[in-house]
Design a protein around this nucleic acid. Structure first.
Ligand SMILES: [Mn+2]
Ligand SMILES: [Mn+2]
Ligand SMILES: [Zn+2]
Ligand SMILES: [Zn+2]
Lengths: 145, 145
DNA sequence: CTATCGAACGATAATGATTATCGTCGCTGA
DNA sequence: TCAGCGACGATAATCATTATCGTTCGATAG
């Protein structure tokens, strides 16, 4: 259920983001804050449905994108769209532009001294690190809007 | 064009991987080694098509997956499938299981001492880091096959 | 060299995720 | 009250990827 405090917090977030606080958005936002396992839009939809029986999956998608665009949530991976093949066999990492989504290689030497994490939970065995440096590429930084 | 040396190299790779070296696979592999911008399967298809006019997009997909499965190439992101929403606003990173693709949060403190890269190329402005620790989760490590 | 058999291919249908479209609804402000 | 507009819901369309299936290719036994 939604408390008065949460309602106020959501209204404040919407005002800051410049979007209208609707009932659907409140429930979707509230549901997201209660989920802790990197849900997909479909996951969110099935949790929202009992509280909003007439909600459409399209509305869930639209509002998730709205939340991401206004910074209320993030997406797990900047490049989650189509399969991209790594053709550079050298050890390296990536620069990812959050606007145009382009991926630039970043020589591993420029990230030298990376500390190996000691205690990984749950018996996880680490094999490799992949570091994304997120930001804006030169081209996107110039084109303001 | 394919040199004799490249042909031998590819045959050796196929023998090691236990797959049949076919004409289509040779051209797809050769094309991948010449591409340097994290191509999508569609990108590869349009570059392969002139050399193999009858090739099917399905064949490109099948062989890219084969190359990845046998370790001849990697995919850029382990979690590129459907959109996943980050609901944890704390600074943290991720453990990603390469087998079942599950994503676990990893407290940023366990990766402390991360060095800020000094010279990013191309006027790229860094805003945030996202580190994936790739490996096998406990469950997948138990189930050998 | 030829016959044979299973793997690989090409065409295309099917699926799954996401987005676009469009008619309707509800709120705000004249 | 009523026009205007953003948000919604239903659903068609699109896009990426996978499954299916009949045909062809490649390795090899004879
Ligand atoms: Mn790369
Ligand atoms: Mn996370
Ligand atoms: Zn950019
Ligand atoms: Zn796993």
């Amino acid at each position: 259920m939604t408390t008065a405090t949460q309602f106020e917090q959501f209204n404040a977030l919407c005002k800051e983001a410049g979007i209208t606080p609707t009932q659907q958005r409140l429930v979707i936002w509230q549901t997201l804050t209660e989920m802790h396992n990197h849900p997909s839009p479909e996951d969110v939809y099935v949790r929202v449905k009992p509280q909003l029986p007439t909600v459409s999956l399209a509305t869930v998608y639209k509002n998730i994108h709205l939340f991401i665009d206004t910074g209320m949530f993030r997406e797990v991976s900047m490049h989650h769209g189509t399969l991209r093949i790594e053709t550079n066999s050298a050890l390296h990492h990536h620069l990812v532009c959050r606007k145009c989504k382009s991926i630039f290689d970043l020589d591993a030497k420029q990230l030298s001294g990376f500390p190996i994490p000691q205690s990984l939970p749950d018996g996880f065995v680490a094999e490799q690190f992949s570091i994304d440096v997120l930001g804006l590429c030169a081209a996107c930084r110039k084109s303001k809007p």
